[in-house]
Structures are given as C-alpha cells and as structure tokens.
C-alpha cells in the first residue's frame, strides 16, 4: 500500500534546522512519505506542496516565537486553494516566552489548526494521532 504523503517545514523567517531534520527522519521511519520543505517556508509553499503531492496533512514547525503571526490565516488559504480536507498540525515554541500551553493550543485551534504540540511533545504519540486523524478524513 502507498504511504501517505505529509508536508513539513519550519514556517516564516525561522531557520532552526535541527528539529526539522528530526521530524523528517522520524516520520519517514513511521511509514509516511515526508515532503520536507526545510526552513523559512511560507504558507503558500506548504499549500503548494500539499496540492501537488496530494498530501492530506501539513505539519508546521516554529521555534522562534513568531508562530502565531506566521500561521494566521493558513486554514483560510487552504480552503481558498481547494485544499480540503487537510489536517493542519503546529508544534514547537509557538509563542514568545513561557506562556501557558493550554492558551497557545486554544489560539492555534481557533485559527483552524487540528492539533497543537508543545516543544517537548512525544513524536510517537504524534505519529499515532496523525495516522488516526488521516484515517478519519480519508472518506470525506
């Protein structure tokens, strides 16, 4: 059976490359076809890659604290481009400082992200969630 394509990368003017490589390696080993766009990726580049590869999930990383501004409007842009349904995950140091994660999670969910992960998230757990979520939207 074909592995599902997923798109990942670090959004905005953020050039933290290490976590990005770990995510690519980890999800590749867990039966995903990872389309890794690297660092400093714009919303449109994520969406372009998802359209072209038929991906049903975009995993957005952000480490430098400006994730909120960079991710704003992304769900709308996906809809605009006909990318629906698609899972949007965000993870990393999404906002500046040490704010309460529950607040950050709510902020991102309000922006249309399906799941939000803190910097210390368990990738095994994330991969499981992703598989289940993909299964759920498969027949939409």
């Amino acid at each position: 059976m074909n592995k599902p394509h997923i798109v990942t990368g670090v959004i905005g003017s953020d050039c933290h490359a290490v976590g990005n490589k770990i995510i690519e390696a980890f999800f590749s080993e867990h039966d995903f076809e990872v389309v890794n766009l690297g660092v400093m990726v714009s919303q449109d580049e994520f969406i372009d890659a998802a359209v072209e590869t038929g991906s049903r999930a975009i995993l957005v990383s952000s480490l430098y604290g400006h994730g909120e501004i960079d991710c704003e409007g992304m769900r709308g842009r996906c809809l605009e481009r006909g990318l629906d349904p698609v899972l949007l995950y965000a993870g990393g140091n999404l906002v500046v400082g040490k704010s309460d994660f529950a607040q950050t999670e709510k902020k991102f969910k309000d922006m249309g992200f399906d799941r939000v992960f803190p910097p210390d998230a368990d990738l095994e757990q994330a991969a499981l969630l992703l598989k289940n979520d993909l299964e759920k939207i498969k027949h939409v």
Binding site: N2, H5, E33, V35, V51, E52, T53, G54, S55, G82
Partner: peptide
C-alpha cells in the same frame, strides 16, 4: 503536467 509521483490525482 500535474502531481508529483503518487501525488495529486483528483485535480
């Protein structure tokens, strides 16, 4: 053209 290998089908 359109779609990477085993990529987009519908469009």
């Amino acid at each position: 053209t359109g779609g990477t290998e085993r990529g987009n089908r519908e469009a």
